[in-house]
Write a protein that binds this DNA or RNA. Structure first.
Lengths: 224, 224
DNA sequence: TCGCACAATGACTGGCCAGTCACCGTATGA
DNA sequence: TCATACGGTGACTGGCCAGTCATTGTGCGA
């Protein structure tokens, strides 16, 4: 159930070419941002890599931040695909909540390992924009998170109804789950700045998934 | 057990006055930063509020970022005091791990509610600096976190030894605990940007502590 | 009384780069 | 063949403010 469906009428050559050029700029920007970081990257360099001039970028994106948000759109689409694949009613059939969590964390972490630089830029710039004075940009991230949470909530509520999960507020649980995965990513990303005490639990998507799943499902206390 | 003990020799009048002036600037900076946000605040304004001129600030702090880090020093001292009060061997006597968690989360959230603006600046600027090219500033936050984690780990390991906690890696658990409290703060801080779906579980330090404690100690699954 | 060290001052500079816009080239279609 | 629109171009500008430094003031000890 994608939020916006492709318009069915075929696009004119003009429109196709326009989208193509937009995509070229987007790809160049992603590469440059990932390489230098967002704030260190200049639009001149993005333009150069895309083989256009700086002014051209402004025919396709309203501002540097806008360009960044367009990149984030793609990233968030991927993440939502992961969530929807794991939490849709269909894929819940015959799977325990534990299995769903495990699969989700694994896939999410996998994606993180494959797009590290971009994830780190996402985190850094998200915090910048969320606390900026620009209400609209701040809301963008709120809405993206809302979208993820909404995709998880029905499944969690269903698990509660079946008696599989404790009757906790599903929205809070979804947020916590996302928060824990993100927290883990940060933890991994930041290792190596110091002498790296390096707890080896977390260095593959499998390990991360196992740790989080155990912890979230059964808790820390030893009730045996 | 504070990390640095006060030097025992009494300070000369000069030194006392110097510290006093430094403190005045620090307080003015905290007020201005909290009010306008760090990046919107100018040193001219800080100086004005402290009733000095801009140049004077540079007699006490090497840069704007340095000034901010000095403010964070105080904040982190508070947080460490909270952690040490709850996780010290002495205060563990006769308390279950559950009680320790609960007390910790409650106190930590309390402090957050009383210093919201500063916490938000901390989060935003920490992410900025951690991902900046300045290795030294990045490490500052690593070390502060390391300090907090280190204060918690012995208690967690003790709980494992007593069979109260599952034998999970203590460092990862400590990080997770901190991550969850921070995640909750973010969640609270960001409500109200949109129409606010507003799950009411999290709006007092008591609720937050209860939710997190249940969840972390016993997990999500209903094994009854 | 002098001189030195310490401290305050605030006008000024330097560097940065996002965003602009007047101009040019090219394709389309009348 | 000309007219129009669409798109590309890149030199330029405007605004910003952290950080500097030459100058002035002050208090203390000799």
């Amino acid at each position: 159930m994608p939020v916006i469906t492709e318009t069915p009428e075929p696009l004119s050559r003009r429109e196709r070419e326009r989208l193509q050029r937009r995509r070229e700029i987007l790809d160049a920007a992603r590469a440059v941002f990932a390489e230098k970081g967002y704030s260190n990257a200049t639009l001149d360099e993005v333009a150069q890599r895309a083989e256009y001039a700086k002014g051209t970028i402004y025919n396709y994106f309203a501002s540097k931040d806008d360009l960044l948000l367009a990149i984030f759109d793609d990233l968030y689409d991927d993440l939502n695909a992961i969530i929807e694949a794991r939490f849709s009613p269909a894929s819940m059939e015959g799977r325990s909540l534990e299995e769903v969590f495990h699969g989700f964390v694994r896939a999410y972490m996998e994606h993180f390992f494959q797009n590290r630089e971009l994830f780190l830029i996402l985190v850094k710039e998200a915090y910048r924009m969320v606390f900026s004075d620009d209400r609209e940009k701040a809301c963008y991230f709120q809405q993206q998170r809302e979208r993820m949470v909404s995709a998880m909530v029905p499944t969690l509520e269903h698990a509660i109804a079946r008696g599989e999960m404790k009757p906790l507020p599903a929205v809070a649980v979804a947020n916590m789950l996302l928060g824990n995965v993100n927290g883990m990513q940060m933890h991994i990303a930041l290792e190596g700045l110091e002498e790296a005490p390096c707890d080896p639990v977390l260095h593959t998507s499998d390990d991360a998934a196992a740790f989080l799943t155990t912890m979230l499902c059964d808790g820390l206390l030893d009730r045996s």
